[in-house]
Amino acid sequence: MTRLSDVVLQSVSGELGPDAAVVVAAEDWLAALSSVKRAGAIFFDFLTGVDSGTEFIQLVAHVATPEGTERLTLVTQLTSSVVDSATGIYPGANWHERETAEMFGVVFAGHPRLDPLLLGVDFVGHPLRKDFALAARATRPWPGLASDAEAAPLRSGGRRRVPPAGVPATWEVPNAD
């Protein structure tokens, strides 16, 4: 039995990444999905985006044979915010693409109905992108800044301020001066 990863690598150019994920070029995204489906991976598990800090989002899709004997993760780094919809190949991609569209701002061309799935229609922004500022964190001062002890060296620029764990430096409380 041919492995799904081999099927992809025979049909499009790509490489085997870590954890047996196959990394393909963005323009080969649909061709890769098409070839694994023809090879028997008719179960569409999920599709989502990954924001690695690059300009455009990475897409990740996971498919499997219905018996679950073979699974394959497909990864592509988009080179624009628009990509062709996979709903023509896997109808099950419908909701996943709607969610990826609202959460990451990826536009799936040819999707039958790219409305928000989970967010309200009046929601502004794409909350799973790294550049999406969480209002609560932006408006609330971090309590971990010592009142006198650390404020003074900061103003002189002599010492680095300690950022809260997991909080990007740009969200820190601005200096008073």
Partner: peptide, 13 residues
């Protein structure tokens, strides 16, 4: 207050 989700984009605070 929102609790563990105090900074969430989707939870009422």
């Amino acid at each position: 207050t929102g609790g563990p989700y105090w900074d969430s984009y989707s939870v009422t605070k």
